[in-house]
Design a protein around this nucleic acid. Structure first.
Lengths: 193, 193, 193, 193
DNA sequence: CATGAATGAGAATTCATTCAT
DNA sequence: AATGAATGAATTCTCATTCAT
């Protein structure tokens, strides 16, 4: 059982909120300490430096996200149901957490190589999750002759772009039934045959 | 005929290269001046400040990109050919410019609101371009009952994610024939019916 | 009771000394921080920027000067005694503070409008102080038919020029008994009748 | 006969106008070159550097001022007439040239020691001019037992302070007949006997 | 002579991090 | 453990001056 640490949690929560809203550079250490209602020095009791706080924030959010999404997918039986679940859960988490994950993902890429590796690591986990579904589906012979990696990229790329636009442009965001449209289109294609 | 300005061009080219490689914050003004082999002060003869240089760099690359892609699409007759062209040209430009466009796109989102508007403006132009194709295709009755905006998001999102990954992970990037896979999958779907 | 703040005071004292000796532009922020034996950044903990430090320095010195001079004048009964006191106190403060006030006054006028207003404000207070004495004296019918504002300008102008010269040219400065000469001359005139 | 040089004169005139309006530091070399409608480099054909241009501007104005005032005084016979003339000519030049002389005088003191000496030199000439009048008057036995140097300081200080206020605060400036008041007050005193 | 593009020394300011209390 | 005052390395930007045309 993880030891309870209120101060540390307060700092992390503030860091997540501010980093995902303003990015790494615009967020100052003092902003986080003010928001968390702790002293500036206290942050350095729990985190080596600003960069580590950033990494830990990302780690925390990603792990939450991936634990949640993995569990949801595991509850489903067929690859199709799993894919549909992935889509709906992505949307659900985006609504709930205001795209924190996607915002952090975008921001990370701007901030140097050490962070980069962690991003890649987490992103790869996400990719592998979906890739596995496609590979299973291929084995079960429910898919056409598709490349599972290309399919994965397509699937994730489409969802992320939707969610990103939803986050950035609330006016033109996708409607609830858009998810059905999206899912059907990806699976059954766009064109009349 | 635009008067040619060697120094200004050298600065812009260096800025584009460094900003897209390292992002706005990691790139120092002095780095750009060294790379362009000009004095630090010279940059301020042509650009009001670092932020403006950044904006101008983005503007330049985006306009090049959009001019090129628009022309390529106009050369095609059918919506299907246009979509295919969009895909191939995106890939071509990504190879050529080392994903500068996508790198800048990603970086912009991390750097404050004034830049954000410009991003949205350029991104919207890109979206409208594809949206138009889908709308025309719907009129010509070649598509299923799809929502053109959802289709557009899917199409662009899938492509960008591919290109982004190609840029980030050069080792695992998509092969040439992946583009065919991608295109067919998007149009004809993934699932056997 | 004002909380004492040693660092802030050290900075202000150094600023007053250097600004009045070298003026706003020749005095660098690093000079002040070195002189005050604090870090460069510490100055920015207490003052928004160099200009604010300058303003606060001026404010501090002027208020000290005006509080002192006002108190001294209030202790005197007749307009004549008040004028004499004003003269002697001006001289006393000049000796004590090395003409900081006059030096700052002179320097302020060279440094833009926002400062200018503050100068005018403080200078007006000084002028009003003397003007009041002349007006009271006129009511008491001890003065000839003089214009109180012209008299005030004359009185202050003469004193300032003396003090200024004393500060600039220490060799040729006015002797102690010069003050008596000055006072008598102003009151009784120069010319034989 | 001084060789005519239009460019140099244009630069000097602009320099005088801008330096006296904005001071040494706020006036940029490019401002002067723009105002004079010459190239920036041209200034360096005629003046070693910005400081020398400043010095030459001051020199030019002061010499004009002193030549004029000296000539005016020489035309008068008695010390009293000379003093009155000095007062009226000071006022006349202030109206005409907008206090350029006084503005430059004030600004000089803020700008380092090399300039300082020149100021002192010119100021001393002005002081000597008036001092001579008082000394002559004393010889002619028209003055009370006054110290000529104190009288000089008083006389000049009073006038400068008037002119300075006139320049800075146009609303409250001295009226024409104030000059008479001023003159009579200085000569005959303020107090009833 | 005249010019203005090019330059870099120099200055103000920011902010992550340290450390004495 | 918690704090925030103190710090200075690092960065952007300015502007007097030079010099090739």
């Amino acid at each position: 059982m993880k030891k309870l640490n209120l101060k540390r949690d307060a700092i992390m929560n503030s860091a997540i909120e501010l980093f995902s809203r303003d990015g790494f550079h615009k967020t100052k250490v003092i902003d986080i300490s003010n928001h968390a209602k702790v002293g500036k020095g206290t942050i350095y009791q729990y985190f080596r430096n600003k960069e580590q706080l950033y990494m830990e924030s990302i780690k925390y959010v990603f792990e939450l996200y991936q634990t949640y999404i993995k569990k949801a997918i595991d509850d489903e039986k067929t690859p199709l149901d799993k894919l549909k679940k992935y889509l709906y859960v992505s949307d659900e988490l985006t609504s709930k957490y205001g795209s924190v994950v996607f915002a952090l993902m975008k921001d990370m890429r701007s901030n140097g190589m050490s962070m980069f590796d962690t991003l890649t690591e987490y992103e790869n986990k996400d990719i592998e999750l979906v890739l596995k579904i496609f590979e299973d589906g291929l084995k079960e012979n429910i898919f056409k002759d598709i490349c599972p990696r290309v399919a994965t990229n397509t699937f994730i790329g489409a969802i992320r772009f939707h969610m990103g636009n939803k986050y950035i442009k609330p006016k033109g965001h996708i409607e609830d039934n858009d998810l059905e449209y999206l899912f059907n289109m990806l699976l059954y294609g766009m064109i009349k045959e």
